[in-house]
Nucleic acid binder design. Sequence first.
DNA 1: AAGTGAAGCAACCGCGGCGTT
DNA 2: CAACGCCGCGGTTGCTTCACT
Length: 250
Amino acid sequence: MGGATWFEADGTKRGKWSEEEDQKLVAYIDEYGIGDWRFVPHRTGLLRCGKSCRLRWFNYLRPEVKKGKLTPREEQDIVNFHSVFGNRWAVIAQYMPGRSDNDIKNHWNSCLKKRLKRNGIDPMTHQPIINLAVKTPSFNTDCGSSSSLTAGPSSSSSSLSGSARLLNKIATSISSRQQGVERIKDIMSDPRITCINGQAKELEESKKDHGKILASSDDQEDDFLMWDEEKVRRFMEEIGVMDLETNGVY
DNA sequence: AAGTGAAGCAACCGCGGCGTT
DNA sequence: CAACGCCGCGGTTGCTTCACT
């Protein structure tokens, strides 16, 4: 997709959006705001379905949307969030201002997933892949990124940092949908899980500013290898994972 | 310079949730 | 309470661009 445009039997236009169409949609949203997408095509004169208009707006035309490449920090955040939320891209996007769920999903599927696999990490569970011979401890640099993602490959989880183990445990619990929130509680209450590197205060500052855990993205250019345990713990509390059981999510 | 495969990206499809009737 | 329609989400497709040989 993404190539030529074509028309359905009912006259609806499909395929790539033209600049003129973009301008019409932007002008409409500017004037009327986001409302009932059903009526957008009629009011704008666009030959698109409402669904297509909505997609175009949220993924591309919104002024908040960042159009550049994802930064190494953002890539790391995606991996971290994915370890908590799994493939719930819309939820992840909420914690990454300026990035649409489609952006995140695309980047994960086309780049990050493969990168994790190559580095001996199961992209679904975020656990090290056992019996996989991975030689290079450093992260490679596909997709133009120079970041190093997650813990390096290891045939044994014992070499992972405490936070990596914690995230892996959480991811396993959530991804499998088999163990429920009690498992997460067990993990969180594990006395071995402690704040090691003392970055909790930084999180506190971040939360004050944005109310979101990722607020610290911009002021730690080089420190994005892994969230520490306290960060994860606070984040889980903040997003209400501890209450999921009562909400019947799992 | 041409061919080929991988990566990046935009958009469509189908399904489930939710609100309305 | 069931039926219906709309919206949002995740999965997937396919075109374009880039990098390598």
